[in-house]
Design a protein around this nucleic acid. Sequence first.
DNA 1: TTTAAATATTCAAATATTTCAATATATTAA
DNA 2: TTAATATATTGAAATATTTGAATATTTAAA
Lengths: 91, 91
Amino acid sequence: MDNKKIERISKALSDVSRIAILQEFKKKKDCLYCAEVNDLLDLTQPSVSHHLKLLVDAELLLPEKEGRNLKYVLNQQVLDEYIASLNELKD
Amino acid sequence: MDNKKIERISKALSDVSRIAILQEFKKKKDCLYCAEVNDLLDLTQPSVSHHLKLLVDAELLLPEKEGRNLKYVLNQQVLDEYIASLNELKD
DNA sequence: TTTAAATATTCAAATATTTCAATATATTAA
DNA sequence: TTAATATATTGAAATATTTGAATATTTAAA
């Protein structure tokens, strides 16, 4: 993973709202709906949409359209690659 | 590790200059001098000082005064704790 | 086809980050 | 003690991020 990608993922992870979104996947198993994220955070819908966009742009979340709803799944592969890059920092 | 700490470390990691600093530890073994970081980056000394401060504030780097020089070591424990927090995101 | 619901976009304001010039501080050398 | 070296701080400009109000788009329901 190149440094620009590490930077982008780190930026995606550097906000407590976005961290909370990612943590919600542990509770909700496999997938999370956009509407659930709106309920989870104490922010307006456009703000939540913005945060989700950053997570999708970083490829930490994979969006799946389901009618007029939007479902997200955690991209474990990208998360693993990011973690592997961090592990490489340790001699 | 609480979410504010995860946020702080993520922020510290979300800049290519700071990522480059951390990666330099692999080459330079165990420690890195402040002056070496100034040479490494194409930035002025105050900018480098600022980046190093963010890494120290996030506790990713531990500073050690050596006369009028400053030596940094990588805090592997904090890095491990951060990685462990990220691993927890995966179900 | 009109209406309602879910999500995205645009714009602007508030705040944060990055960078550098200038300067300050701390420590060693002369 | 004075001068030089290493690092930190301050202040300001440029840029980026966060947030919400207003509005647009997309899709399903009536």
